[in-house]
């Protein structure tokens, strides 16, 4: 057994984010400047413009270039391809979260730590499925670590979305479906593709990411950017938009629109009502409660370290089961709101 003391830990939480001293690199640093960053995926709270050099997967690289800059110094690797950082051997493995998303495996003198990054176990046509990576210590996200969070099959959710669209066509109204511009939007388009070939209109913020996914060969329904120059009647159309567009002047051109939101949070009615959406579709790119427990079991890790979301609750639950678990807190803790 290796010591659990933070000074010998392979990866620890610092104000800048997760840090590996033996390899002298950060994982998804939130503040900087730092020298080297291994990036699990392209979401804004994970890929920030704070490092001199970035390491990431082939799938993530166009997203990072789009979101950070074309000029960043970027080392791109394939899944499972080992590379050396400092005294450690690092490899990236599919996390099933979004296109290019990765878990980070770090090995040092025979000890293996894995950082899951954001991950899910559910099927997703837009990315490689989660790979079980055995390890000694597993650092996992705990965004949805409450037992009420159990996801319905995505195919069922897609059928619900299509049925809602049909209802709105009948009512002669426009459907505006809110979802994160990176990952969720493309997953919806890809799930819909299995059911229909109807065209979906896109908010300007979603369009470039859809292009990146098409480039990567992900089959999705036909899409078109909304043409804001010409006024027209949008009745019967389906529009995908980022959540920030709700309540913005952009929404004003869709009078009487029916609104929906795709997110794991939609499992709880109050979350939907509070944000004022008509419909909530429970579709998450994070692990639900059963998947979290399954993953800890699969990893064979003797220690579990958690960050984000309901870490403290899951730690207590694991401890009661006799699992060695701690909460790392989050570098964002002081900024987090519900």
């Amino acid at each position: 057994m290796t010591s659990f003391a933070p000074e010998t830990a392979l990866i620890k939480m610092t104000p800048n984010g997760l840090y590996c001293p033996q390899g002298r690199f950060y994982i998804d640093p939130v503040r900087g400047p730092v020298e080297r960053a291994v990036i699990t995926h392209g979401h804004a709270d994970h890929a920030r413009n704070v490092a001199e050099t970035y390491f990431t997967t082939f799938g993530s690289s166009p997203i990072l270039q789009k979101r950070l800059s074309n000029d960043i110094s970027l080392h791109t690797v394939s899944y499972s391809e080992p590379f050396t950082l400092g005294e450690t051997t690092v490899s990236l493995h599919p996390a099933g979260h979004i296109l290019g998303s990765a878990q980070v495996r770090v090995e040092h003198q025979g000890e293996v730590w894995v950082v899951t990054g954001d991950f899910k176990r559910d099927h997703d046509p837009t990315c490689q499925p989660f790979e079980v990576v055995p390890c000694d210590t597993l650092i996992s996200e705990a965004t949805f670590a409450l037992p009420i969070y159990r996801w319905p099959p995505a195919g069922q959710v897609a059928r619900d979305i299509l049925a809602w669209w049909d209802e709105n066509i009948e009512l002669h109204q426009v459907s505006v479906l809110f979802c994160y511009a990176l990952g969720k939007a493309q997953r919806v388009l890809a799930e819909l593709k299995k059911l229909t070939d109807r065209k979906v209109l896109l908010h300007g913020a979603i369009l470039p990411i859809v292009d990146i996914y098409r480039e990567a060969g992900i089959p999705m329904v036909p899409t078109e950017k909304i043409d804001l120059q010409h006024k027209r009647d949008y009745a019967g159309e389906m529009i995908l938009a980022p959540p920030s567009a709700l309540g913005s002047p952009w929404m004003r051109r869709f009078k009487g629109a029916q609104t929906g939101f795709c997110s794991g949070w939609m499992r709880v009615r109050g979350n939907r009502r509070r944000r004022g959406y008509d419909r909530g579709f429970v579709l998450s790119d994070h692990a639900d409660w059963p998947s979290l427990l399954q993953t800890f079991d699969d990893s064979q890790a003797s220690r579990i370290q958690l960050h984000h979301g309901y870490s403290d609750i899951l730690v207590r639950y694991l401890e009661e089961l006799g699992v060695d678990a701690i909460s790392l807190g989050s570098p964002f803790a002081d900024l987090e709101t519900v």
Binding site: L146, P147, I148, V268, R269, G270, Y310, I313
Partner: peptide
């Protein structure tokens, strides 16, 4: 804890 989070 779950009840506190859901509120209903």
């Amino acid at each position: 804890e779950t009840y506190a989070s859901v509120g209903d």
